[in-house]
């Protein structure tokens, strides 16, 4: 039995591993190779090994600005997601109402509509002479959110929030309600019981869902393109722009790698925000 175990494990891990290698690792390796090539207007891609694409990114302030905007939007969205999703998820996790599954469905419902279609909905709301503007017009002011950072943040938030609520809800449901009762029985007010007992226990899960939201925000494409407009730049649209419009595959590959590396770096750094004893 003991002899066969490694074989069985290999058999179980095999299919998933080969899919990951074929579909993820190999293309990434190819992409990285491309990022070291040189771009030529006529020949498009010339095989060589150069760090020129990376140097270009780090020497031109324009790209720095794009990366900064991307991080800013993704981080703001992640923080807002926690702030807005937390109370909702907490109520959902602790409710004994028989409408609970209906409430859950309402949270998931936006996910039934593709994010592009939803963004078009936001466009109708935000546009000049759109719904919000018209309503504001009745009160003699104007609301012009279209093509602003705020619009992009709201749009991305609406995409990420349902994921946030779902993960946080299961985090809270994993925390025994008896702990809250125990804390209250020992003299803690409901809010102290939450912050002293539930919050530290939920923190690793909250971090994970914030990271999830951050990653989704870093890689957002449709929302910044549609709600941010032509002059608003984020990394994912920029990658596509270089790839598609400029046909600059090497630089586009380098941008993709920089985006990925930044996301990974910030994600792993965020781990240190959770005190060690709270880590799962």
């Amino acid at each position: 039995m003991r002899q066969k175990l490694p074989l069985a494990a290999a058999g179980l891990l095999g299919p998933a591993t080969s899919v990951v290698v074929l579909m993820l690792a190999a293309p990434l390796a190819l992409l990285f190779r491309d990022s070291l090539n040189r771009f030529d207007v006529t020949e498009l891609m010339i095989e060589t090994v150069t760090a020129a694409n990376y140097t270009r990114f780090f020497t031109e302030t324009f790209y720095w600005e794009v990366l900064r905007t991307t991080i800013l939007v993704a981080a703001t969205v992640a923080v807002l997601c926690v702030a807005l999703g937390l109370p909702l998820a907490w109520r959902l996790a602790r409710t004994t109402s028989r409408w609970k599954s209906l409430m859950m469905l309402l949270v998931i419902l936006p996910l039934f509509i593709g994010s592009t279609v939803r963004t078009v909905g936001w466009m109708i709301l935000f546009a000049r002479n759109g719904m919000m503007d018209s309503v504001a017009g009745l009160f003699g002011t104007r609301v012009d959110l279209m093509y602003t950072t705020t619009a992009v943040i709201i749009g991305t938030l609406s995409v990420n929030l349902p994921f946030m609520v779902l993960t946080l809800q299961s985090v809270f449901e994993g925390i025994d309600d008896r702990l809250t009762e125990a804390a209250q029985g020992l003299g803690a007010t409901p809010s102290r019981a939450f912050w002293r007992v539930v919050w530290p226990l939920a923190l690793p899960g909250v971090m994970i869902s914030a990271i999830l939201s951050f990653i989704l925000g870093m890689n957002a494409y449709a929302t910044p393109v549609l709600l941010g407009g032509p002059r608003f730049q984020m990394m994912a649209p920029l990658v596509f722009w270089e790839f598609n419009t400029n046909s600059n595959w090497p630089f586009s590959a380098a941008l993709a790698f920089i985006l990925m590396a930044t996301t990974l770096l910030l994600t792993s750094l965020s781990n240190f925000l959770v005190p060690r004893r709270y880590r799962a």
Binding site: E181, A182, Q184, G185, L186, G187, T189, P190
Partner: peptide
């Protein structure tokens, strides 16, 4: 409320 009852549970 529970937190003011001084019960040891």
């Amino acid at each position: 409320p529970a937190h003011r009852r001084e019960m040891g549970m």
